[in-house]
């Protein structure tokens, strides 16, 4: 049994996890409520909060797992991409911890880790995992990409957003409607009671398997501006239908390119990763595609779709098997990742 400690601090959540091979023994996350009132993540607040959270979070992860730190085989950390100040806290801590215990240090890429989260098993679980090669649609507040996954670390982005991320479109549309942050879950909830066919919104075009959402945001904004001229209560009176129609449009844009990519590569193993995979509309569309298109679809449990350290630890495990270790001079990177 190989015990890996994973540390994730790329954005606003400080998380630590311990895995025995691919089985999760603990996954502890301290979320930063402080950002809610700012309507988004504020980098400097995030890095300060990471400094306060990191020691207790790691302590708890080890305790819940029941693994003394001396029994760990390696420490894996998120090297990037993410917010620089946040990444520095996790990177520095991981290095010091590895040095102190004379453990190998393993770097993980946040975007690849989101995909590798599909391989995490819960104790006493023997869940089916995607077979290589598979396609993964990663959708979150900062990312929208289709990744062709040939092996654990052989990944290629075959399509991505050329402007706004899908999650950002949800958040900005929510802000336009004066809904609370984070906008995605609020829109998802309102959409359940709305008519998705009431308002047609355009599907912005992008080449190949790329996405574009900026034009949708703008036409949503202009549509509301024009509607408010005739009826100042338009948003209040229609927020369910607006949410349902917008959500349907975003999901249909996501599924369209994913379907094209699946057909092009002749792949029927299709996975979803990232925070937006919690969206009910997207989950329903994936189930529908499983029935209609003969896909085998994989949606991880919600706790593995948002930022978490279990996915960093599982990435660390696969690298540990290949003895792919990192030197202590590794500095965080803020952009890029899979490429």
């Amino acid at each position: 049994m190989t015990y890996i400690l994973g540390i994730e601090s790329s954005c606003d959540d400080t998380s630590a996890a311990v895995l025995a091979d691919t089985t999760m023994l603990s996954n502890v996350t301290a979320s930063q409520e402080v950002h809610r009132k700012y309507g988004g993540v504020v980098p400097e607040l995030a890095s300060r909060a990471h400094q306060q959270n990191i020691v207790p979070v790691i302590h708890e992860a080890l305790q819940v797992a029941g693994i003394p730190k001396e029994e760990l085989h390696a420490v894996a950390f998120t090297r990037g991409p993410g917010l620089l100040g946040s990444l520095l806290v996790g990177t520095s801590f991981a290095k010091a911890f590895a040095l102190g215990l004379d453990l190998p240090l393993i770097e993980a890429d946040h975007m690849k880790a989101h995909i590798l989260a599909h391989f995490i098993q819960l104790p006493a679980e023997n869940k089916k995992v995607p077979q290589f090669p598979f396609l993964c649609l990663t959708v979150s507040g900062g990312h929208t990409q289709i990744v062709l996954v040939r092996d654990y670390f052989e990944m290629e982005i075959v399509g991505q957003t050329i402007d706004d991320a899908a999650g950002e479109t949800f958040d900005k549309a929510a802000k336009i409607m004066s809904l609370p942050y984070p906008g995605g879950p609020v829109i998802d909830k309102l959409a359940a009671a709305g008519d998705p066919d009431r308002f047609p919104f355009p599907h912005p075009q992008a080449k190949g398997f790329d996405y574009s959402f900026s034009g949708l945001k703008t036409s949503f904004l202009y549509f509301l501006r024009d509607s408010l001229k005739n009826n100042p209560h338009f948003i209040d009176e229609n927020k369910e239908d607006l949410s349902a129609s917008l959500q349907k449009t975003i999901i249909s844009i996501l599924m369209h390119k994913l379907t094209l990519a699946a057909e092009h590569y002749g792949i029927n193993q299709i996975a979803v990763a990232g925070g937006v995979s919690a969206n009910t509309g997207l989950r329903r569309a994936m189930q529908q595609a499983q029935a209609d298109k003969g896909w085998e679809t994989f949606i991880p449990p919600f706790s593995f779709t948002t930022d978490n350290a279990a996915m960093i630890a599982v990435s660390g495990y696969f690298k540990y098997l290949q003895k792919d270790f990192t030197t202590h001079s590794a500095a965080p990177y803020t952009r890029g990742g899979i490429g």
Binding site: G40, V41, P43, L83, G141, G142, Q160, T161, I162, D163, D164, A165, G167, E168, K172, S214, T334, R335
Partner: peptide, 14 residues
């Protein structure tokens, strides 16, 4: 040559 996207989430893109 990098992909230029909205920095709303990250605040700074390089």
């Amino acid at each position: 040559t990098d992909n230029v996207t909205s920095p709303t989430f990250a605040i700074i893109n390089e």
